[in-house]
Amino acid sequence: MASINDISNEFVRNEIDEYIKEPDEREGLIATYAAISSRMQSIGAALVDGQNKTVDALTVEALADGVPALEIMDDGLIAAMRIVGIKFRENFIYVPEVLSCARAMKAGMAHIEPILSASGIKPLAKVVMGTVKGDLHDIGKNLCIMMLRGTGFEVIDLGVDTSADEFLAAVEEHEARLMGMSALLTTTMPNMAVTIEAFIDEGIRDDVKIMVGGAPVSQEFADDMGADGYGKDAMECVALAKRLVKEDAAQEG
């Protein structure tokens, strides 16, 4: 079993030591970082520290030296976002810090995405994502989208203020079997139920798994309105999306 001293980058080592307390997560991250190159660890360290210019430069440099884009995304960027996600969940950091890390991830992804798109890798699934009608907040939704894309999902982003009809149309047009709705306001949360009702009325509720999230949303609220799942944050959104895709595949037989 890998130990924390197997991680060469001091910053990453300290981050894991100080902030990752849950044994499974700690063990998983130590194993991940012990197995990846010091170069990818440096990208990860810069990302966790919110240094977008450094991530940009190191990504360009690594690609120029022939490091595969997929390796940079998985080992350099996504692994670091796992640390960021846990720190956010445990209230060690808040949205400004997460936004800063997301900005750093975007700086790296800007170089990686075109390469991955051109390589024709099949996405895990298509996901339609949007903030519900009447709500113009999108930070949480955008973080989810970034993490979903980074994990291999194809995301159709409907933006903010999305009506039930727009969700319906997008799911049908893109033949998506997974959809995510976000709301930041207690006043707009009921529009999640309105949208789910619209899918029932159209007779296609069983054709799509619906996940919901947003600061005021809870598991109880999600259950009450008949959503298939609730994610507290972007990390949970990714885990939930993977689970729902599996369930969907199992149901399809």
């Binding site: 009447g134 113009l136 203020d161 306001l185 707009t188």
Partner: peptide
């Protein structure tokens, strides 16, 4: 601004 209709709140277009 987005003044919306009877059943929705008016909001600022923060984007």
């Amino acid at each position: 601004m987005q003044w919306e209709q009877k059943d929705n709140w008016p909001t600022v277009r923060m984007r």
